[in-house]
């Protein structure tokens, strides 16, 4: 808790969870995709589905996908900006089983062919969490440089990855290991204080047992 959670955030209304949080979800998903979004199929679930339209949740998510921040006065007009930029989007309303009450699912295609299927929750006060990426269950905010690594679940992987990061002088802010991905695989979510460069990412990808490494930058 920070004093600027009491006086702030500066944001486009009306709701910190349903509007500001929704912009952040769009922004986080854009960062995960790593390029301009060309197509977005968005499903709003729970309270997002029930009151999202009245809170501008739909406009807010599209605004985030376009790279706008929660205090960007263009948020209410994001649909026309999307048209200008050629972003095609659709909304569906439905319940995502077992999801947090304020959840959105975004299926995205990028300008250069990247794809992502993401579930994100708005936790209140504008804070958000990515809860699923493809078939990986995980939890992170995408508001810091983040490395997501899927690996075979065997000893040594975590140590190898931390060693490479420390050799690259990358300070690790948080490090989670989840075993909940499918059979015998684990997912590491590493939030870093500074962005790792391409060489480090290549070294990590070359480690034995590493299946995939996604880097979510802050642009």
């Amino acid at each position: 808790m920070d004093i600027f959670d009491l006086i702030g955030p500066i944001m486009v209304g009306p709701s910190s969870s349903h509007t500001a949080g929704a912009v952040r979800i769009g922004l986080a998903c854009r960062r995960i995709l790593g390029e301009e979004v060309a197509e977005a199929d968005i499903t709003l679930s729970g309270s997002f589905a029930a009151t999202g339209r009245g809170h501008g949740t739909d406009k807010a998510i599209v605004a985030g996908l376009l790279g706008m921040a929660p205090d960007d006065v263009r948020v209410p007009d994001s649909f026309s900006y999307a048209q200008e930029k050629g972003l095609l989007f659709s909304f569906a309303f439905g319940d995502i089983p077992l999801a947090h009450p304020n959840t959105a699912r975004l299926v995205l295609k990028g300008e250069r062919g990247a794809e992502a299927d993401i579930e994100a929750a708005s936790l209140g006060g504008g804070r958000i969490e990515i809860r699923r990426l493809g078939d990986m269950s995980l939890r992170f905010s995408a508001e810091q440089p983040t490395l997501i690594i899927r690996n075979e679940d065997r000893p040594g992987n975590v140590a190898d990855v931390s060693r490479i990061l420390s050799e690259g002088k990358i300070n690790i802010a948080t490090f989670q290991v989840n075993r909940n991905s499918r059979g015998g695989e684990a997912v590491m979510v590493i939030e870093c204080d500074t962005p790792p460069d391409e060489t480090l990412l290549r070294r990590i990808r070359a480690l034995p047992g590493i299946l995939r490494a996604v880097y979510v930058s802050q642009e």
């Binding site: 006086i7 486009v12 006065v73």
Partner: peptide, 21 residues
């Protein structure tokens, strides 16, 4: 009203209560 109409406001402590301060 500004908040309900999607203008930029300062949550204090929340968006719904932004008018008091």
């Amino acid at each position: 009203e500004c908040n309900a109409c999607m203008h930029r406001i300062v949550a204090a402590p929340t968006a719904g209560a932004c008018g008091v301060m």
